[in-house]
Simulated assay, not measured.
Amino acid sequence: MFTGIIEELGEAVRLDWHGEAAVLAIRGPLVAADARHGDSIAVNGVCLTVVSVDGDTFTVDVMKETFDRSALGGLAPGDRVNLERAATLATRLGGHLVQGHVDGVGVILRRTPGERWEEVEIELPPPLSRYVVEKGSITVDGVSLTVAAVTDAPQHRFTVSLIPTTLELTTLGHKGVGTVVNLEVDVIAKYVEKMVTGVRS
Rank of each mutant, 00 (worst) to 15 (best):
K135A: 12
T166F: 11
T49I: 13
T151P: 10
T197Q: 08
L172S: 05
A12E: 03
F158M: 14
V105I: 15
I5Q: 05
H101K: 00
V51N: 06
D103H: 08
R14Y: 02
D68S: 14
A42M: 00
G173K: 04
D152M: 09
V46L: 12
G19T: 03
V120F: 09
R80G: 08
L89A: 15
S144D: 12
T179Q: 06
V199P: 08
T3M: 08
T112W: 05
A35E: 00
D54R: 08
V150P: 06
S40A: 13
A189Q: 15
G176S: 10
T166S: 15
T179W: 07
A86C: 13
I122R: 03
A153T: 10
S161T: 14
V180R: 11
V23W: 07
R80S: 14
V13K: 10
A33N: 05
A25H: 01
C47A: 07
T166V: 13
V23N: 02
E65F: 10
T165F: 14
E20N: 15
I108E: 00
E121M: 10
P164F: 12
L72A: 01
D68T: 15
S70K: 05
A86V: 09
A149C: 05
S52Y: 01
L15Y: 01
A86K: 04
T146K: 10
A71S: 15
V147H: 13
P113Q: 12
M63K: 08
V51F: 01
L89Y: 08
V31E: 01
G19I: 08
V180K: 06
Q155I: 14
N82Y: 08
D16F: 03
V43T: 05
R111H: 05
G73T: 05
G4Y: 04
V120T: 11
A22D: 02
K194H: 13
L167D: 03
P125D: 09
A149D: 13
S161L: 14
H174L: 09
V23T: 13
G38K: 00
G45W: 05
N182A: 04
T170M: 02
T3G: 05
M195I: 15
A90C: 09
G95M: 04
F158Q: 10
T91V: 10
L72T: 01
Y191A: 12
S201G: 12
L48G: 04
A42W: 00
G176F: 02
T49F: 08
L167E: 07
E119F: 13
G104L: 11
A76I: 06
G10N: 10
N182S: 02
R130E: 14
L145M: 08
L172V: 04
T66F: 04
E118Y: 05
G94S: 13
G142V: 07
L30M: 06
A22G: 07
T59E: 06
L75E: 00
G38L: 01
V150L: 07
E7H: 02
V102F: 07
L167I: 09
R110L: 07
A90R: 14
L48A: 09
A32C: 09
V132R: 03
G19P: 03
Y131T: 07
E84R: 00
A33E: 13
